[in-house]
Simulated scan of single mutants.
Amino acid sequence: MSTLLKCLSHTPLRGLNDPSQSIVDEVNTVLADARAEVEAFDPELIILFAPDHYNGLFYDLMPPFVIATDADSVADYTSLPGKLSVDVDTANALAKHILNNDVDIAISHRLQVDHGCTQTLEEMTGTLTRYPVVPIIINSVAPPFCPYRRIRKLGEAVGEFAAKLNKRVLILGTGGLSHEPPVPLLNESPEEVREFLIAGRNPTPEARQLRQQRTIETAKVYGRENCTQTPLNEHWDLAFIDTLISGRVAEVDDYTIEDISRQAGRSAHEVRTWVAAFAAMGQMGTFDARKDYYRAINEWIAGYGVVSARSA
């Protein structure tokens, strides 16, 4: 049994509102190195912690955690379409194990997933179907949120399960770091937007394009004085990364929702996927972790980071 972990920021704005070519090349090099490491590791199973951005989960039923036995990409922005190669038997067994460990998790036998799930899978494997995968969606954009100690406990239950598989397991966490795109809040939105947040599945191509264009337009001014969104916070991002790679994941129990939103932006809660990934890794025995890359990239509305860990 061996384990490899990769946690990456994602951004649907790659190729749509890029920073300088030198930064694009820098990120492409980091991603190519990460993918090469994944290919050399040749995982037998991928456990993928990811958020959703009101594409598969809505307020008509918004669980804190969902494990999918079947997942289909909505292909938003430039993400790949198609089904993921979900390992159904492992997904069902993992769901049972999580529930038996006193963590409540929902099960979806037909889940739609967006770039938050598929972009990192594509970047690390070149496709959505190369390796068997178990997707676990953690609510990261739709308040109210469960406390961070629950994220840690979810990850620990997953890691305990994975440690018994006797397989090469790749753990992926996708999302974050500090960022705040124009994601509406239910209690502050007009009725039309509220209806979308409650039951907005399968929008028309025109509606999806309009929504995506709003994000692109925000990215063009993000970080400037005329932008009202919370700016990127390099100091917060690097401190968070250090907490994880130095093996202090239990410290997230002291994180508060309000403080993270204020310091790093409302969508920074996507770091929940990183917390779950490192908590899972901690159950696989000792590990070596490192920061591969970090840069605050306004054009992508992303504190963009890549971190890795491998079982020792």
Rank of each mutant, 00 (worst) to 15 (best):
L84E: 08
S85V: 07
V86I: 05
V88E: 12
D89N: 09
D89G: 04
D89R: 12
A91D: 13
A91I: 12
N92D: 10
H97P: 00
L99R: 15
D102Y: 06
S108L: 04
R110G: 14
V113C: 11
G116Y: 10
C117W: 09
T118Q: 12
Q119W: 10
L128K: 13
R130K: 15
Y131I: 10
Y131G: 15
P132L: 06
P132Y: 00
S140R: 05
V141R: 03
V141M: 08
F145S: 02
C146M: 12
R150Q: 13
R150H: 11
I151R: 03
R152F: 12
R152Y: 12
G155A: 05
G155T: 07
E156L: 06
A157L: 05
V158D: 01
V158R: 00
G159C: 01
G159D: 01
K164L: 11
L165G: 00
N166E: 14
K167Q: 10
R168I: 09
L170Q: 07
I171S: 02
I171Y: 07
T174H: 08
G176R: 04
L177Y: 12
S178E: 10
E180Y: 03
L185H: 04
N187A: 15
N187E: 14
E191I: 14
E191D: 14
E192W: 04
E192G: 04
V193H: 07
R194N: 06
E195N: 13
I198M: 09
A199K: 15
A199S: 15
G200V: 07
G200C: 10
R201P: 00
P203F: 06
P203C: 07
P205E: 04
R208A: 06
Q212L: 00
Q213F: 05
I216P: 04
I216E: 01
E217S: 04
